[in-house]
């Protein structure tokens, strides 16, 4: 009888204690960290870090700040944001700040949108003299546009050179196809066929020139098997499947699969 009373009291007390601590009066939503921010706020912070880096040129500080955001590899996360902003038509100066930071962090130039010539960074001890007037806003850098629309005629056979998979904080899995000539220049107008169980779609490289003349992409559904083919060589099939990635916080993020085709 005593043992039952003791056990019942302990279990009831534990339940009441947990109810109070988790439901009635939980730990306040305060004192959170940069790592716990929602994805869109992390993107804003990444932009802020890039803008600060563009002003002070302190790479180690920028790296430490990006690490605090816990978005995985800093170079890739910055490059991915630069691509997304470029694709959404964001202000070129902001894309350029991100691209500069991604390059400084070691991101391959192929990952970055084209934003024109990079601007030299200031020294690490800036002595700002500008006054906060509207004339001090930096001039937007125009994104180069292609001189001709992509042609649907494939300019030759391609071979798959590289397959890369990235875990990025993107809203949806993305298939990226980059067509290059023998020396690595982007080739526009290459038609890509994407097939999946019950469906098919096509796209061309070069329709997003801000991401490179040989660049094309396609939004995929997670956990679905796709087959990628080039019209110039329809016999060659490249299967891809976007498996969800898990970020350092244990949350699942979208996958980007990049296929780089090169002319021999």
């Amino acid at each position: 009888m005593r043992a039952f009373a003791a056990l019942f009291g302990l279990i009831l007390g534990l339940g009441l204690g947990l109810l109070y601590a988790y439901v009635i009066d939980p730990v306040d939503v305060a004192d959170t960290t940069l790592a716990s921010l929602r994805v869109e706020y992390k993107a804003e912070m990444t932009q802020l870090i890039a803008d600060a880096y563009a002003a002070d040129g302190d790479l180690e500080r920028a790296r430490a700040r990006l690490t605090a955001l816990a978005q995985g590899d800093p170079a890739q996360s910055v490059a991915a944001l630069a691509q997304r902003l470029a694709a959404s038509g964001a202000e070129p100066s902001r894309v350029q700040a991100l691209a500069q930071l991604a390059l400084a962090l070691g991101a391959p130039p192929a990952l970055l949108p084209s934003t024109g010539s990079p601007t030299a960074l200031p020294s690490s001890t800036p002595t700002p003299t500008l006054e906060p007037t509207s004339t001090a806003i930096p001039t937007a850098t125009p994104i180069p546009l292609p001189t001709r629309p992509p042609s649907p005629t494939p300019p030759g056979l391609f071979q798959l050179a590289t397959t890369e998979t990235f875990c990025l904080t993107a809203p949806q899995p993305l298939l990226q196809v980059i067509a290059q000539d023998a020396v690595g220049n982007g080739v526009p107008g290459v038609e890509v066929i994407v097939e999946w169980p019950g469906g098919q779609d096509r796209f061309f490289t070069g329709l997003k020139p801000e991401l490179g003349l040989g660049y094309g992409d396609f939004a995929m559904e997670p956990n679905l098997d796709y087959t990628v083919r080039l019209t110039s060589d329809p016999a060659a099939e490249y299967p891809v499947r976007p498996e969800p990635c898990t970020d350092p916080n244990g949350r699942q993020t979208a996958t980007t699969i990049r296929l780089i085709f090169r002319q021999p």
């Binding site: 019942f8 009291g9 302990l10 009831l12 007390g13 534990l14 339940g15 009441l16 204690g17 601590a21």
Partner: peptide, 9 residues
């Protein structure tokens, strides 16, 4: 035991 359980919770 109830008090102990609450404290533990």
């Amino acid at each position: 035991m109830l008090a102990l359980g609450v404290a533990l919770g």
